[in-house]
Design a protein around this nucleic acid. Sequence first.
DNA 1: GTATATGCAAAGGCTTTGCAGTGAG
DNA 2: CTCACTGCAAAGCCTTTGCATATAC
Lengths: 127, 127
Amino acid sequence: MRITAQRVEILKLLEGNRTHPTAEEIFRDVKKSQPAISRATVYNTINILVELDELRELVYTSGPRRFDPDLTPHDHAVCIKCGGFFDVKSDNDVRSSIFIDEKPFKVKSRDTTYHGLCQVCANSNDS
Amino acid sequence: MRITAQRVEILKLLEGNRTHPTAEEIFRDVKKSQPAISRATVYNTINILVELDELRELVYTSGPRRFDPDLTPHDHAVCIKCGGFFDVKSDNDVRSSIFIDEKPFKVKSRDTTYHGLCQVCANSNDS
DNA sequence: GTATATGCAAAGGCTTTGCAGTGAG
DNA sequence: CTCACTGCAAAGCCTTTGCATATAC
């Protein structure tokens, strides 16, 4: 994997990023320091990082993919009203093996997403 | 919600269906009994059923949406090699409330997906 | 009768691909 | 020097939308 100026900027932007950005958001932000960058480069780099397990692809329903550079085990919560995407501490261990019809399934990763209402939306009264 | 021949056939097809079909697969299968049905009708019906909580939209990464008419609490496992999609018994309860920065989040549903290798793929030796 | 559902085709959002040119190693 | 990466534009996949017609109630 070659180190290019574009990739350096993408990595800089992702480092410590807790906003769960979409590819489009990454593209928009990297454009500030790399005005000529193309979406293809962003998608290409993201896909390589996910492939290398250096970037986590989030798991949820609907909309564009979101990415998370935080590789420590944690879950996520999505507010069904405002769309907010939050980190949640895991309360159970990742099991290395589960059984399906008594046949073992070798777990590589586990993704848990809660769907519901965040505090702000739960307390607001608009329809 | 009106009962039309198309909807009856879609519901028949989904009833007891454990294949986690995509909209395209539902379209293809319903075509057998309703040759003139359009994708728009399938998508429309699916979306209404999901909205009414009569059909579960699965949560996983990549590819088209998959649907599950089994509304009892259970998790899923996806084989990263063959793409197989399996049901998994849940081993923990759905929590009705979690905390994010000490602020409550009202959980409506929880989705857990395991990514890994199914028994067949774990035992095969091809690259 | 009338509102809702249908089928079709077109458009839309997100992502990938093909290709010629560029630049890291 | 060479091969991987880039930017661009086009295409691709999945889904939604607009509209005229059909049909459940």
